[in-house]
Structures are given as C-alpha cells and as structure tokens.
Amino acid sequence: MRTGFHPARLLVLAMLALFILLPLVQTVVLSFLNTLPRDGLAEGTPSLINYRNIFASDDLRASLVNSGVYVLLNVALCLGAGLPAAYAFSRYRFTGDRHLLLALLVFRMTPPVVLSLPIFILFAQVGLVNSPIGIALVHCLFNLPIAIWILESFISAVPQELDETAFIDGHSLPSFFLRHLIPAIAPGIGVAAFFCFSFSWVEVVFARILTVTGGKPITMAINALFTFQTDIGLVMAMTVISLIPGVAMIWFVRNHIARGFTIRA
C-alpha cells in the first residue's frame, strides 16, 4: 500500500480539520472576548478578563483540583484492577472466560442514567457522596471494562515465552508484572490511561449526583456559571482550560492511539 501526499486525500484531511476545529476555534475566540457589559470595557473587545476571573474565583480553581483528583484516582483504580484481569483473560483458558469478558463490556454499555439513583443511595449509605473516591469508583463502571479490553489485546501481542522465561528465572507473578510485563506493554498502559482519563474527565451524570454539597468537579463548576446573565466568555475560557489536560494526554499517546482495539474471536 502506498502512503504519501495524494491531493484528494489531503483535501479530505483538510475538510476533516475544518469540521473538527471550527467549534473549538469559536470557543477559543469567545474565551478571549469580554462578553458582558463591564465598566471601562465594551462588550466584544478582546481581553484576558475571563482567564483572570477564573484564577480569581476560589470555586473554579477548587473544581480543577477536584476533577484532577478523582480522574487520577480512577485511572489508578482501572489500571490496578484492570491489569491483572487483562492478564488472566489473555493467558488462562477457562469455560466461559469469553462470556465473562463480554459481560463486563455489557456493563460499559449500561446507560449511567439507569444506575444513577441506586448508586446515589448506595454511596450515601457508605459515606462516598461528596468524596472524590466515590466518583473515581463509579467511573470504573464504564472505564474498567474498557481498560481490561485494551490491556488484554496488548498483553496478547506479547509472546508467552516472556512469561515462561521469567518464571524459570524465579520471578514471582508480582515481580514479573513489575519487571517484565509492564515495560513490555507500556504503550498499551498509556492508551488505556488515555481512554480512562478522558471518559472520566468528561462524564457529567455521576459527577453531578455524587457531589451534592462539596467536591464539585469542573463540569459542575461550568454548569453553575449559567445564571440569569451568563458570562459566555467565562464559560468558554473555563472550557478551554478543561481541554488542556486532555490535549496533553492525546499528545503523549499519539503514536499508539489506534493500537490495542483488536478482539480475539
């Protein structure tokens, strides 16, 4: 297959770029405009006031930290529980193991609205409401199956001899994981972390119902900005800031993003 700079293909790429970037360009432009009538600053003038307002607001700054904490916790949970499970699915054969993997994926497909009510009641009983741990746990509902699926396909691409030689060399299972397996599938861990990170960062339904009084995430802080007189510039500036971690993650996994989605029959 020839790859290169075919003009028709470049045109497709350019149109795709226009479609994807246009809404984002709009967002960035608005974030640098003053969108409310203010003293000494006409509406529609370019200004950094929105970004200054974000860093002047305790709520907005705190929401950035809250989101960061539960997203990182979620990624750690999904990788911590997902890696051993993915290894088990990749290396062991048992009756029903494929069905179990599929059942896990069905949970990824369970709509959050369906489970929001009992999850709130359950988490309220064990004191996980208003806590980042609660949100990090509940996001495992859709992220853990995805992490297991991605990691499983990366582990299956590693030849089994790696395990066998390590065990002959006297490595225990945990030490084999740390010394051999994790370095061998580092890109896969990156890709899994990227998807867990983004799906946790952008999720709204659970993040809203589990933060009643405190620990508001960035998504809810943005929602709270919609009032009688919404400062749309401030909303857009907050959105731009909320994009930065995701864009950084995309950059880190850019060369591996399209690997790790193969399923063995």
């Binding site: 020839r2 790859t3 994807i20 984002l24 952008v202 709204v204 998504t219 994009l243």
Partner: peptide, 28 residues
C-alpha cells in the same frame, strides 16, 4: 493511506472532541 505524520495528525484531530466535557459540547 496518508503519510505517517499526517495520519498521526488526523488521529489526534479526531480524538480532540473525545476530551471535551459532555455538558460543554452543546454549549460550544
């Protein structure tokens, strides 16, 4: 079928909307 650099660029591009918070997508 694009040059690998452009392919990576294209993939990064289409991944962008995936990291936008869901409640901000309608606002945008």
């Amino acid at each position: 079928r694009l040059h690998p650099v452009l392919r990576t660029f294209g993939l990064m591009l289409v991944a962008l909307p995936l990291v936008v918070p869901w409640n901000m997508i309608p606002m945008i």
